[in-house]
Write a protein that binds this DNA or RNA. Structure first.
Lengths: 214, 214
DNA sequence: CGAATGGTTGATTGTGATCAATTCCCGTGG
DNA sequence: CCACGGGAATTGATCACAATCAACCATTCG
């Protein structure tokens, strides 16, 4: 269910996408706001809508029987998420930071929207496949490097702000927070990155990261 | 490019889907045959077509810089594969066994086919996400159990024939062949399965496997 | 029968998980 | 402004598990 924690919020990526661009698309509903760590919807909830992120960061995740959390993906402003093969959501969606999203009903989709959804689905597919490959090939350093390349993909500046906690990164990469921490330190030692603050990383050399990632 | 190794072949799953059912769909081209371990197309090749498996088994894979192979998915008769977000294939497709596939041009797709492709994409997405989750949560036993549940999903009988080699399983699960072998032995020890032959496994208890998998 | 391929089993090593302290950072209140 | 408190992050020591290296079996095919 949609827990409507109404809250005004700027968000890390707010400047990246104009509001007008985000609001004007077919089937759009009023913008909804969610506070940090609140739940947008849960695994098993009916999938009436998909969503587009306006500001902030959203994560989709699932829990295994033993209680371990697996983060499937992060969604930043401009990204859409929440469309499913079945009638219910396969993942829980949560607000990593305070965030704003536009829910959008699936029904009443026109030709062009159908086209758009299809290409979005293929993009998500490619991302999930890349994620699986990253997790399949062992190394903690490889995973970390891949993650850093991913989140800094569309950045021009060398400095990246991490909106998510270490635990989020760990659950996304299938590692522990300790290993995440150690691996970051290790990447700093080989001069691939520099740790400016806990959530502030300077990417010194993408080439080195690419090399480590494989 | 399409390496047309013409060859007549029965295939492990041939009986599962009728030929007529497979050939009659929009944009279908003549059936193509590929011999075991031959390449259907390579990563980077132009993606003019997607494919539907008639008989045999196909794998899609990618290679990391260090030469390690990652298998993305296996496709059995009835499955479609090879549609991409971009203009080129992101994976190499190879014949695990001798197999037959129907290539199908993307252009000229009607409304109903577009609908079909969309739902196929979402199914692939769900599968890739499940795969990522399996690889993310450590344990070799968990991965193996998940794999066994996957390949025996639509089987009524308890006995499963594995069409692929240990190396294929290893590359799919991000393990080594030795660990695959040991883990199978271990699953046998806890009476989840029985190893009848190298490629013949009896599933004794799905419940136990589910439990292990999590 | 013998070679070759694929699979299993054994011994050892390396890497990340786990358990356990600190330390760092940031917001709060004196 | 500084002291304090609490959650987040780092660092350290040890342990468990899968990779690696290596030898051995089984099955198929010439």
């Amino acid at each position: 269910m949609l827990t409507a924690d109404i809250q005004v919020q700027s968000g890390h990526f707010a400047a990246a996408v104009s509001r007008a661009q985000l609001v004007s698309f077919p089937g759009a509903q009023p913008v909804m706001h969610f506070s940090q760590d609140s739940t947008l919807y849960e695994e098993g909830d009916g999938a009436n809508c998909y969503y587009r992120v306006v500001s902030g960061l959203v994560r989709t995740c699932r829990f295994s029987q033993d209680g371990r959390r697996h983060i499937d993906a992060f969604y930043k402003p401009g990204d859409v998420f929440g469309f499913e093969p079945g009638a219910t959501h396969g993942f829980t969606a949560e607000a990593v930071t305070d965030c704003a999203v536009i829910p959008c009903h699936r029904r009443g989709a026109g030709e062009s929207e159908a086209q758009y959804l299809y290409s979005s689905a293929l993009e998500h597919l490619a991302r999930a496949q890349a994620h699986a490959q990253l997790l399949g090939r062992g190394g903690a350093a490889q995973r970390m490097a891949g993650f850093l390349l991913e989140i800094s993909a569309h950045k021009q500046a060398g400095v990246v702000e991490l909106p998510m906690a270490r635990q989020d990164i760990a659950d996304y990469l299938g590692l522990t927070i300790e290993t995440v921490s150690r691996t970051l330190a290790q990447l700093q030692r080989v001069h691939a990155i520099r740790l400016l603050a806990a959530r502030r990383i300077e990417i010194i050399s993408r080439a080195v990261l690419q090399n480590i990632c494989g």
